[in-house]
C-alpha cells in the first residue's frame, strides 16, 4: 500500500511571503486602510493572514486553529479567536469585518445594523477565482500592491502546474459518510489540473454527495483521496474501515488530503505540487510493473 503523505508546506508560502515583502508600500489610492480587521471565516482568515500588514488583522475564526481544516493553524495562534458571533465581534470594535459569501447572514446583518463595515468575499468556485479574491481582499485591506504581487505569483505558478490529462491516473474522493466530490468542486479542479482523471466525470456526478461504496469499488480508481480523520470516533468516518473500502484503497494507493485543499487561497499551490508528486509516483510504479 502506498500511502502518500506529502508535506512541503513552507515552499510556496515562502514565495508568497517574498512577493508580499518586496511589494511597494501603501499605494496612493488606499489612503485610509482599516486598522482593526476581524475575519469570521476560515478562508477569509487565511487570505487576511497572508495579506494583512503587521498588526492590522486582529482576530480570526476558531476554525483557523484546527490543523485538519486550516492550512495556517500555527499562524492563527497569534490572533484573538472569534466564533463568528455578532456580539463578540462587535466587542472587538473592528473597522472592517471580512466574511465569506455564505457566512451567517444573521450575524452579518446585525453587525451592519450596529454600524460595522462587513465585506463578504465570494466563494472561489475555480482555481481561476482565487487571483481575483486575493486582489479583492488586498484592496479591502489597503494592500493592493502586495495582493497584486501575490496574485501574479499564484497565477504564474498555477499556469505551470496546470497540466490536464484525460488519460491520466484515475482519481476518486472518498470521505466520511461516503461523501465524494463532484465535478463542481475545487477538489475536482485540483486533481484534473494536476493531470488526473476524476471518476466523477464518468459517473456524471456534479455536486458533492454520497457515493455508494459499491460504486466506488466498481469504478476501480488508481488513487483514492480521503481526508485526515478527526479525533474521537464517528460512525461517519468508520466507512473508511469497511473491508471493501480498504481493499480499494490498498489496490489504488491512498492519499490523505491536507488542509490546503479546503480553501480557495494561494496555498492550493502546495496541494497541486503534492498532486504532481503523487501522479509521478503512480506513473513510475506503472512503468516499473
Amino acid at each position: 500500500m502506498s500511502v502518500l503523505r506529502p508535506y512541503s508546506k513552507p515552499a510556496f508560502a515562502a514565495v508568497l511571503a517574498a512577493a508580499v515583502s518586496t511589494a511597494a508600500p501603501l499605494s496612493a489610492q488606499d489612503i485610509d486602510p482599516p486598522a482593526r480587521v476581524v475575519s469570521m471565516n476560515l478562508c477569509t482568515d487565511q487570505l487576511a493572514m497572508l495579506l494583512a500588514a503587521p498588526g492590522q488583522l486582529l482576530s480570526v475564526s476558531y476554525v483557523a486553529l484546527d490543523p485538519l481544516s486550516s492550512a495556517m493553524a500555527d499562524e492563527a495562534q497569534d490572533y484573538v479567536i472569534n466564533h463568528g458571533g455578532a456580539e463578540e465581534i462587535y466587542l472587538l470594535q473592528p473597522d472592517l469585518v471580512l466574511a465569506f459569501e455564505w457566512s451567517d447572514p444573521i450575524a452579518i446583518s446585525m453587525l451592519r445594523r450596529l454600524g460595522i463595515r462587513v465585506e463578504q468575499v465570494p466563494n472561489a468556485y475555480s482555481l481561476a477565482d482565487i487571483g481575483p479574491n486575493i486582489r479583492l481582499v488586498g484592496g479591502l485591506l489597503g494592500r493592493a500592491a502586495e495582493a497584486e504581487a501575490m496574485a501574479t505569483a499564484y497565477e504564474s505558478r498555477l499556469a505551470e502546474l496546470t497540466t490536464p490529462d484525460e488519460t491520466g491516473p484515475r482519481a476518486a474522493f472518498y470521505g466520511a459518510n461516503g461523501v465524494s466530490s463532484g465535478t463542481w468542486s475545487m477538489s475536482h479542479q485540483l486533481v484534473t489540473a494536476a493531470g488526473f482523471h476524476h471518476i466523477a466525470d464518468e459517473l456524471q456526478i456534479t455536486a458533492a454527495g454520497q457515493l455508494p461504496l459499491e460504486m466506488l469499488v466498481l469504478a476501480d480508481p488508481d488513487i483514492v483521496f480521503s481526508p485526515e480523520l478527526y479525533a474521537g470516533a464517528s460512525q461517519a468516518e468508520s466507512i473508511l474501515d469497511h473491508p471493501a473500502y480498504r481493499a480499494v484503497a490498498k489496490d489504488a494507493g491512498a492519499f490523505t488530503t491536507s488542509a490546503t485543499w479546503d480553501c480557495g487561497t494561494p496555498l492550493v499551490i502546495e496541494a497541486l505540487e503534492d498532486l504532481h508528486a503523487a501522479r509521478d509516483r503512480i506513473l513510475q510504479e506503472e512503468t516499473a510493473e
Binding site: N177, Y230, A231, G232, A233, S234, Q235, A236, E237
Partner: peptide, 10 residues
C-alpha cells in the same frame, strides 16, 4: 461533546 465534528450528524 465529541471532538469529532461528524459525531453530531450521527
Amino acid at each position: 461533546l465529541s471532538p469529532n465534528p461528524y459525531a453530531i450528524y450521527e
